[in-house]
Simulated assay, not measured.
Amino acid sequence: MDIGIIGSGGLGANVARALARKGLSATIANRRGPDSLAALVAELGPTIQAGTVAEAAAADIVLVAVRWIDLDQALTGLPAWNGRIVIDGTNPVEFLDPESPDAKDPANPLAAYGIKAIDLNGRYSSEVFREFVPGARVVKALNHLDVNVLAQPEASGGQRVQFYSGDDAAAKAEVRKVLEAIGYFAVDLGSLAVGGRLAELPFGSLAATHFIKI
C-alpha cells in the first residue's frame, strides 16, 4: 500500500524520516513543488520521493501534515478521494508571531507556547477536517506528540505509544499496520468523536502525553 504525505514541515518531514528508517516508501509533497524538497529526499534515501500535491494525494494512505489555517489552500482542487484513507495529523491551533498582540495576550493561556486555540464552535477537529476531504475515510493519528520525536519510535528501551482513532474499522486497521511498521505501539482510542477529542491539541486530555510501551 503506497503512502503520500502532504506537507513537509516538522510533522511531514519527521514521519518521512521514520518511514525511511524502516525502508518504507512514500511520496512527500508541498505547495512549493518537488524541487524544493531535493535536500530532504537526498537525506532520506531512495524510498522517499518528492512529488506534487496531487501525486501524494493519489496514494492509498495520505497523511495531511499542514497547519490548520493552510488546510483549504492545501486540499482544494485535488481529485476525488473515492474512499482512500486520509490520516488527519492536524490540530486546530494557530502559530503566533512572537511580536503579535495575540502572543502577549494575558487572556490566551497558550500564549507562552506560541500558539492560540482556534474556536471550532463546539465541533471536534476531525469533524471539520472531513469537510476538506469529502469521500475519504479519515483516521486521526500522528498529531498528539511533539513532531521532533516522531522520527524516533523506539525510546527508553521500548516503543513510543501512538494514538489513533476513526469511524471506519478497515481504515483504522490499515493505519495501524503503518504505525506498527514504523515501530510505534499503536493504541486505538475509538471513534473520531471520542478518541479524536482525547488526543487533539491543545486541550485533549491525552494531547502531548508521552507513553512508552516497555
Rank of each mutant, 00 (worst) to 15 (best):
L78Y: 01
D97G: 08
D88L: 02
G77N: 12
V86W: 02
Y113C: 10
A111W: 06
P98K: 13
L120M: 13
K104A: 15
Q73L: 12
D119M: 10
A80H: 06
I85S: 07
V93K: 04
D105I: 09
V86E: 04
G114S: 06
A107D: 15
L78H: 05
G83W: 01
R84H: 07
G77T: 12
A103W: 08
N108A: 02
A117N: 06
D72T: 13
I118S: 01
K116F: 07
T76H: 13
G122T: 05
T90N: 14
R84S: 05
A117C: 03
A74C: 01
W81M: 04
I87P: 02
D88V: 01
R123S: 12
D97M: 10
D88A: 08
L96H: 11
P92S: 12
I118V: 15
R84A: 06
Q73Y: 09
Q73G: 10
I87D: 05
E94T: 14
L75A: 12
A74F: 00
L75E: 03
A103L: 06
A103P: 00
F95P: 08
I118P: 01
F95E: 10
P79T: 10
N82D: 15
K104C: 10
L75C: 11
G77W: 04
A74W: 00
I85Y: 04
T76I: 10
A111L: 08
A74N: 00
T90C: 15
E99A: 15
I87E: 03
L78T: 08
P101I: 07
K116W: 04
V86N: 04
A117Y: 02
P98M: 12
N108G: 02
R123I: 11
N108V: 03
N91P: 08
N108K: 00
